[in-house]
C-alpha cells in the first residue's frame, strides 16, 4: 500500500488517472445530487449514451484524438439528445420515460455504428475511440486532466453561484415561477451542467457507466444528512474517494479496468451508507424503532 501511495505522488500515469478520477467523482457527485432529487437520473443516462455519436463525428471531422474536440462533439451530441427529449415530451403524447429510452437507444445505436465504420476504415489512431464505451482511465494524459478540471470547475462554480436558485427549482418549481425566476432557463442550465458532468466522466468511465457516478454518490450521501448543502459536499467527497480508490486499485497491479472499479467502490460506499447512514441508514432506523417501541411490542 505505501508503494502505491508513493507512486500516486511520483508516477505520472497514476497521478493523472487518480486526479482525473477524483475530478469526475466530484463533478458527478455534486451535479448528481440535483439529478437524483429532481428524479432526472435516467436523463443523465440517456444523455451519456447520446454523447457517443458526437465523439465519432468529431473524430471524423477533425481527424484528431485530442480530447477537447472529442468532448466538444460529445457535448453537442448530448445537447441535441436533450432537445429531442424535450421536443418529444412537449410535442407528442409520449411520456418522458419512453422519450428517454428512445433517445438513449437511437443515439447509442448510431454511435456504435459510427464506431464500427471508423474502425473498418482503418483511420490512423482510430484504436482509441472505443475507449469511450467503457472508459479507459489509464489513457488519461495531463491535457485531458486539465480539460476535465476546467469543465468541472466551471460547473461547480455555476452550482455555487446559483445554489439557492437550483435548490428552489429542485424543491418547488411552481413557487419559483411565481417568484419570477425563469424556471425554463434554470432547468436548461441545470440539465446542461449535468451534461458537463457526464462529459467530464466519459473518457475515464465510459458512456455506459458514467451515470453511476451521478446516482450512486448522491444516493449514498442522502443517507447521512437532511440538508442539501451537506448532501452535496458528502456526495462530492464520496465521488472523489470512489474515483481515487478505483484508480489506485486498478493501478496496483490487478490489471482491472478503472471505470468499473470506480463504480464498484462507489457501490460499496452506497451499501455501507444504506446500512449505517446516520440520518436514514437501516441500522439506525432499526435501533430508533426499537427504542421508540413500547416495552410490550419488543
Amino acid at each position: 500500500m505505501p508503494e502505491i501511495l508513493h507512486e500516486l505522488v511520483f508516477d505520472y500515469t497514476i497521478r493523472n488517472v487518480a486526479l482525473g478520477s477524483a475530478i469526475l467523482g466530484v463533478a458527478g457527485g455534486v451535479l448528481g445530487c440535483f439529478a437524483v432529487l429532481r428524479r432526472q437520473s435516467l436523463m443523465g443516462d440517456a444523455l451519456a449514451h447520446a454523447t457517443l455519436p458526437g465523439v465519432c463525428v468529431a473524430f471524423m471531422l477533425s481527424g484528431s484524438r485530442a480530447s477537447v474536440w472529442l468532448l466538444l462533439g460529445a457535448a453537442v451530441s448530448a445537447w441535441i439528445g436533450a432537445l429531442v427529449i424535450l421536443a418529444i415530451v412537449r410535442g407528442t403524447r409520449i411520456k418522458q420515460d419512453a422519450a428517454l429510452g428512445i433517445v438513449l437507444s437511437v443515439f447509442f445505436g448510431a454511435g456504435v455504428v459510427l464506431l464500427t465504420a471508423i474502425a473498418r476504415s482503418g483511420a490512423a489512431g482510430q484504436s482509441g475511440l472505443d475507449r469511450f464505451l467503457f472508459g479507459q482511465a489509464a489513457s488519461l494524459i495531463w491535457p485531458d486532466v486539465v480539460t476535465m478540471g476546467a469543465l468541472a470547475g466551471a460547473a461547480l462554480l455555476a452550482v455555487a453561484v446559483l445554489f439557492k436558485e437550483f435548490k428552489l427549482l429542485a424543491f418547488d418549481p411552481a413557487f419559483a415561477a411565481s417568484l419570477g425566476y425563469p424556471v425554463r432557463v434554470l432547468d436548461v442550465l441545470l440539465t446542461s451542467l449535468i451534461v458537463v458532468a457526464v462529459i467530464v466522466g466519459i473518457q475515464a468511465v465510459g458512456v455506459v457507466l458514467v451515470v453511476a457516478l451521478l446516482i450512486i454518490p448522491a444516493a449514498s450521501a442522502r443517507q447521512w444528512t437532511d440538508r442539501l448543502s451537506v448532501m452535496v459536499l458528502i456526495s462530492a467527497l464520496f465521488g472523489a474517494a470512489s474515483g481515487v480508490a478505483g484508480a489506485l486499485i486498478s493501478a496496483s497491479g490487478a490489471n482491472l479496468p478503472t471505470g468499473p472499479l470506480i463504480v464498484l467502490v462507489a457501490t460499496g460506499i452506497f451499501l455501507l451508507s444504506l446500512v449505517t447512514g446516520r440520518r436514514r441508514g437501516l441500522l439506525w432506523s432499526f435501533l430508533r424503532d426499537r427504542r421508540a417501541a413500547p416495552e410490550g411490542l419488543r
Binding site: 432529487l37 439557492k164 436558485e165 435548490k167 428552489l168 429542485a170 424543491f171 418547488d172 411552481a174 413557487f175 411565481s178 417568484l179 425566476y181 442522502r222 444528512t225 437532511d226 440538508r227 442539501l228 451537506v230 448532501m231
Partner: peptide
Amino acid sequence: YVPQRGSVDWDFPTDALDVVMMGLY
C-alpha cells in the same frame, strides 16, 4: 402563493425554516 401540498416532494433534504426562507428569495 401557497401551492397544493402534494405538488412537492416532502422527502427533499431541507428543514421547515429553510422552506419558509424561500418566501424571501
